[in-house]
Structures are given as structure tokens and as C-alpha cells.
Design a protein around this nucleic acid. Structure first.
Length: 424
RNA sequence: GGAGAGAUGGCAGAGCGGUUGAAUGCACCGGUCUUGAAAACCGGCGUACCGCGAGGUACCGGGGGUUCGAAUCCCUCUCUCUCCGCCA
């Protein structure tokens, strides 16, 4: 969430920047400032009352020691009154603080200047593309048919065991998953990321830290009995490693990668979008996370984009890179690049990666800070993350694009990991 | 699951109702000394909020209570450790 400091220093600029999200937040921002002023005022009153009470209590202590019981008694009465007023003020203050927090957590991140105007994903700005759309043979079919033909992914079986959106990978299908996981992890390792194997369930504090709670509670599976959530992405447990941490500048950059299964309820999705591997409740993803000095986070974002691009290139998939427009930009992000690969049989672009700079938005919730060398103050760090990469749609594109009458060819870069070069 | 012990500053560890934001040691930073370093000595050393400032307030795992006054007493939650049970 935004800091009060950000809002108080330049309220107009905040409101103006948020307009690119196609909404006017001036009402919210003004209410926040108003509430904050009330907070300050109430706190000043409370501090005064408490100071007086503290003083009095000390005096009473002294009087008792000196054996002046009578004087102490009258002082006690006065203290009792003070206590009541301070109690009232305290509960008022708590209420105000809670309101302020709620208000603050409802304002999205300030978009970077590079974010283009627009409402939907149609308005995203294409900044790059590569690879070539393959020419498929006459009898080419979408990946869900290929999955059945070669018996590598069984959607019905998943439905039987669990429900829709939980596919079962079999034989070479399972091996392909494992190969992709190892390939992505290896590439991340080469780029200097430390591998993390995180818990797949998280508590409330972690969900709040990275911004899934309270905004996206409905997207997560919840274990009511233990009050835990299944992770929607490894971003959550991995970034939360640094919750409540104060770093030194020398610690930057912190680079972590993690493979995990991800669980999303995807309530409200339907139709073509969810066919086959296009949208699942459980899927596998390799995530890269960086924690960086504010001066260097955008440089880092570009490096992360390059990393993802190199993965897709090695897999020889046609892709395009887009910068998300204001309407498509996530609540917590300041700038996001998406990668889409072309899935030739369904003739669709599929989003396979999303790389974002959150600036201090997550760090503020996480209380993730660093000690500045210059002025020795603690300041909020910048957090970034990206998918590198999510498996299902990559698999969809690989299957569809590489299908031949003889079988599905495996891209060269992946063969050392699969141990086979064709699925037939 | 049962029984017990515990949670204090970066770490270790005192304090167990009154001037304790908290002894002491280590670590860390600045200085003296030294050719340099070590040692020794001197000084500094938590976070947040309010205030132009002096200063004030809050924080000893979280929340609540008792009291004029709580790190200290009570309740509750969470977590850690030890023993027993169960178990991949």
C-alpha cells in the first residue's frame, strides 16, 4: 500500500498518476488525508492525557514512599478521572487508525510514467516480439486433443479425482513437466538466483504482505480449520521471507527463484478461456523474485524481462512482449510486462509470464526496509517478481506448435532435460 | 494428542508492581593511542508516531484485564523448547 508520506507530500500528483487506472481517486485520497489529520489531532490529545497520568502516577509513588498517604489519596482520584478520558481517546484513536488502514489498503499502487493509457488487454502496448508462427500440417489439432491422442495429460481423470482444472499428467506428459521445471530452475540458477523451496500454504500475515489479502481472498483456497491459504504463486512465501526485515545496502540485490505448484480458484472463469491447459486450478510455475535498492529497481526489471525472453527464445516459441496499460495493470504493480506465446492450433496468444516492479507498495505492507548508507535512515526497499515461467500454457504452445504427422517434437534446449526428442 | 517450561533490544542475558526504554557482556559506529593493526581507554548505539524545537507518547511474542502505576500480577491466543504418545 501507499505510504501516508507519499500521499501527504504530493497529493495532487498521486491523484493525477492514478487516473491512468481509469478511476478518479481524489475522494479516497482526500478522505485519507482528512482521517490522518484527525489521527494526529486525537493522538496529540491522547499523548497529553497520558503524559499527565504518567506524571501523576510517579508523584503518587513518591508520596507513598514519603508516607504521605492522604495526599496520595487525592492524587489517586484525579488519576482515575484522567484514566477515563485517556481510555476514551485510546478507543477513538484505534478506530481512526483502523479506518485509515482500510482506506489506505484500498488505494492501488501509483503507476509508473511508462504505463500506457487504456482499458483492457487490447490496449496493452506491444514493445517487442520474436519467433515465427509455425505452419501446421492439415490435421493439426488443439493441445487438448493432442493430450488425449498421445495419452500424456488426462483431464477427465483429474475431474474424477478432484475436479475440473486439476489435470493428471502421464508418461511423457509428466516427464515434460519435470523437464521444464528443471530447465527453468537451471536457467535461473545460471542467472544468479538462489533456489528456494517454500511452503505451499501461507498464513494471513503473508497473504497481506504481498497484497493477496484482503483484495483477492476469493482467489485463494482456504483451509478454514487451520486458517491457512494454499499459495496462488510462490511469490507469496518467497517474498515473505523478507517480511519485517531490515537489510543493509550491501545485501542488494536479493535474487530468489522458486518452483511451486500454484492454486487458484479462478471463480467466474468459463468457456474457451478455460479449455484444456489454458486456465487451471492447480498448475506449476517457476517464479523469480528480486529485492532491490529503489535506485536500481527499473534496471532490474529490464534484466528480468530479458531473462524471461531468453527462456522463450530457447524454447523456440513465437512471442510478444507487452507493457500493461492502466486498465490491465494489477492493483499492487507500478509497471508490468507480460509475455504471450502463440499457440498455433487454437490460434491464440497465451499469457505465460508477468513481470512487475512493485516499488515500495509490497515493501510497505511487508515492512521490508534497508538502512541507507548516506543518512543512516531506514527506508522501504523495492520488490519485483516475475514468472519464469508458468508451465501449462507453455506446454499448450509446445504441443500445438511442434506437432507433426510423426509426433510432437521437443525443442533442442529441452531434450537434455526430457531425455527424449519426440512424443509419439 | 497428553504433561511441563519458556518468549525481554542485532545476539546472549538480568530484571518479576513505582524515576526501567530497560543492568551487564558481545557485536556495531566514532574518537584517543599506534607507522598500520590488535589491545586498552573515552563516547555513541532500538523502532514508530506527534512537535519548528525543548520535548512528549507508544512498544519487553499478539490481544484483553487488574492497578494511581505493569516487562513484572491475571485471562486468552500464537510460537518455541523438553518429555510421553502417534507417525512419513
Amino acid at each position: 500500500m501507499l505510504t501516508l508520506q507519499q500521499i501527504n507530500t504530493d497529493k495532487e500528483a498521486v491523484i493525477e498518476s492514478l487516473k491512468i487506472r481509469n478511476r478518479d481517486y481524489s475522494k479516497e485520497i482526500n478522505l485519507i488525508i482528512e482521517t490522518d489529520n484527525l489521527r494526529k489531532q486525537t493522538q496529540a490529545e491522547q499523548d497529553k492525557a497520558l503524559a499527565e497520568a504518567n506524571n501523576l502516577a510517579q508523584q503518587i509513588g513518591k508520596l507513598f514512599k514519603e508516607g504521605k498517604g492522604d495526599e496520595a489519596k487525592s492524587a489517586k482520584e484525579k488519576a482515575g478521572q484522567l484514566k477515563e478520558t485517556s481510555k476514551k481517546l485510546t478507543s477513538q484513536l484505534n478506530e481512526i487508525k483502523e479506518k485509515l488502514n482500510t482506506l489506505l489498503s484500498e488505494v492501488p499502487n501509483i503507476p509508473n510514467k511508462l504505463v500506457p493509457a487504456g482499458k483492457t488487454d487490447q490496449d496493452n502496448f506491444e514493445i517487442n516480439s520474436g519467433g515465427e508462427k509455425p505452419k501446421l500440417h492439415d490435421k493439426a489439432v488443439p493441445h487438448w486433443d493432442l493430450a488425449k491422442k498421445y495419452d500424456i495429460i488426462d483431464f477427465d481423470l483429474g475431474t474424477k479425482i478432484t475436479g475440473a482444472g486439476f489435470p493428471v499428467y502421464k508418461g511423457k506428459g509428466a516427464k515434460l513437466q519435470r523437464a521444464l521445471i528443471n530447465f527453468f530452475l537451471k536457467e535461473a540458477e545460471i542467472s544468479g538466483y538462489t533456489e528456494i523451496m517454500p511452503p505451499l500454504m501461507i498464513n494471513e500475515a503473508s497473504g497481506f504482505g504481498t497484497g493477496q489479502l484482503p483484495d483477492k481472498e476469493g482467489q485463494m483456497y482456504k483451509m478454514e480449520v487451520d486458517n491457512l491459504y494454499m499459495i496462488p504463486t510462490a511469490e507469496v512465501p518467497v517474498t515473505n521471507i523478507y517480511r519485517d526485515v531490515i537489510l543493509t545496502e550491501d545485501d542488494f540485490p536479493i535474487k530468489m527463484t522458486a518452483y511451486s505448484s500454484c492454486f487458484r480458484r479462478e471463480a467466474g472463469s468459463y468457456g474457451k478461456d478455460v479449455r484444456g491447459l489454458n486456465r487451471l486450478h492447480q498448475f506449476d510455475k517457476i517464479e523469480i523474485v528480486q529485492i532491490q535498492h529503489p535506485d536500481k529497481s527499473y534496471e532490474t526489471l529490464d534484466i528480468m524481462v530479458k531473462h524471461v525472453e531468453s527462456l522463450i527464445k530457447k524454447l523456440e516459441l513465437p512471442y510478444r512482449t507487452v507493457r500493461l496499460c492502466g486498465g490491465d495493470l494489477g492493483f499492487t504493480a507500478a509497471l508490468t510486462y507480460d509475455f504471450e506465446v502463440y499457440s498455433a492450433a487454437q490460434e491464440k496468444w497465451l499469457e505465460v509470464s508477468s513481470i512487475s516492479n512493485f516499488e515500495t507498495f509490497q515493501a510497505n505492507r511487508l515492512k521490508l526496509r534497508y538502512k541507507s548508507k548516506n543518512d543512516k535512515k531506514t527506508k522501504l526497499a523495492h520488490t519485483l517478481n516475475g514468472s519464469a515461467l508458468a508451465l501449462p500454457r507453455i506446454v499448450a504452445a509446445l504441443l500445438e506448435n511442434n506437432q507433426t504427422p510423426e509426433g510432437i517434437k521437443i525443442p533442442k534446449a529441452l531434450i537434455p532435460y526430457t531425455g527424449f526428442d519426440i512424443i509419439n
